[in-house]
Amino acid sequence: MKTLMFAAIGTMIATGVLAAAPEQLSMEAVNASDLSAKPEKEVSPVMIKAQVLLDRARFSPGVVDGRNGENMKNAVKAFEKAKGLKADGVLDDELWAKLSETSSDPALVEYTITEDDVKGPFTPIPDKMEEQADLERLSYSSPEELLAEKFHMDVDLLKELNPETSFDKAGTTIVVANVAAQPAEKNSADIEKIEVVKSEHVVRVLGKDGAVIAVYPASIGSEEKPAPTGKHEVRAVARNPNYTYNPDYAFKGVKAKEKFEIKPGPNNPVGSVWIDLSVETFGIHGTPEPEKVGKAYSNGCVRLTNWDVEELAGMVKKGTPVVFLE
Results as ranks from 00 to 15, higher is better:
residue 180 A to S: 14
residue 64 V to F: 03
residue 77 K to I: 05
residue 262 I to K: 02
residue 2 K to D: 11
residue 187 N to C: 04
residue 89 G to C: 07
residue 145 E to T: 11
residue 14 A to R: 12
residue 29 A to L: 12
residue 279 V to A: 14
residue 264 P to K: 05
residue 159 K to A: 12
residue 179 V to L: 01
residue 215 V to F: 02
residue 78 A to G: 12
residue 219 S to G: 11
residue 291 E to Q: 15
residue 25 L to G: 02
residue 130 E to A: 15
residue 149 E to A: 06
residue 122 F to T: 14
residue 152 H to A: 15
residue 264 P to Q: 05
residue 106 P to M: 09
residue 121 P to R: 10
residue 116 D to Y: 15
residue 321 P to H: 14
residue 171 G to T: 13
residue 25 L to A: 04
residue 250 A to H: 07
residue 166 S to G: 09
residue 281 T to V: 08
residue 148 A to R: 02
residue 158 L to V: 04
residue 221 G to Q: 03
residue 203 V to I: 12
residue 281 T to Q: 12
residue 271 G to T: 10
residue 132 Q to I: 07
residue 121 P to H: 06
residue 33 S to L: 07
residue 288 P to M: 06
residue 317 K to G: 10
residue 72 M to S: 12
residue 201 H to W: 06
residue 225 K to I: 11
residue 28 E to C: 03
residue 291 E to H: 14
residue 52 V to R: 00
residue 224 E to L: 12
residue 70 E to W: 05
residue 200 E to I: 05
residue 219 S to Q: 07
residue 85 L to D: 07
residue 240 N to L: 06
residue 268 N to V: 05
residue 33 S to C: 11
residue 152 H to W: 08
residue 230 G to D: 08
residue 165 T to F: 08
residue 107 A to T: 02
residue 80 E to V: 01
residue 256 A to Q: 05
residue 19 A to W: 00
residue 126 P to R: 15
residue 193 K to L: 10
residue 181 A to V: 09
residue 163 P to Y: 10
residue 79 F to M: 11
residue 82 A to C: 09
residue 77 K to E: 11
residue 319 G to T: 08
residue 184 A to L: 08
residue 58 R to M: 12
residue 286 G to N: 04
residue 58 R to P: 01
residue 5 M to W: 10
residue 270 V to Y: 02
residue 173 T to G: 07
residue 200 E to S: 13
residue 53 L to Q: 04
residue 117 D to T: 06
residue 8 A to D: 10
residue 78 A to W: 01
residue 34 D to E: 09
residue 324 F to I: 06
residue 103 S to R: 03
residue 274 W to Y: 15
residue 51 Q to K: 12
residue 8 A to N: 09
residue 188 S to T: 08
residue 36 S to K: 14
residue 144 E to G: 03
residue 304 L to N: 03
residue 63 V to C: 11
residue 28 E to T: 14
residue 325 L to S: 14
residue 130 E to C: 14
residue 286 G to Y: 03
residue 42 E to Q: 13
residue 218 A to D: 04
residue 6 F to H: 13
residue 44 S to G: 07
residue 303 R to M: 07
residue 256 A to D: 00
residue 258 E to S: 08
residue 286 G to M: 00
residue 204 R to P: 00
residue 139 S to D: 13
residue 293 V to D: 01
residue 298 S to C: 02
residue 246 N to K: 07
residue 271 G to D: 06
residue 50 A to I: 02
residue 87 A to D: 09
residue 319 G to H: 10
residue 13 I to Q: 13
residue 9 I to T: 13
residue 43 V to H: 01
residue 91 L to V: 04
residue 182 Q to G: 00
residue 147 L to R: 01
residue 239 R to W: 00
residue 261 E to G: 00
residue 24 Q to P: 09
residue 106 P to H: 10
residue 168 D to W: 07
residue 163 P to F: 11
residue 277 L to H: 04
residue 93 D to M: 10
residue 251 F to W: 13
residue 226 P to F: 07
residue 224 E to C: 00
residue 4 L to W: 14
residue 242 N to L: 04
residue 87 A to N: 10
residue 6 F to V: 14
residue 190 D to Q: 15
residue 41 K to S: 05
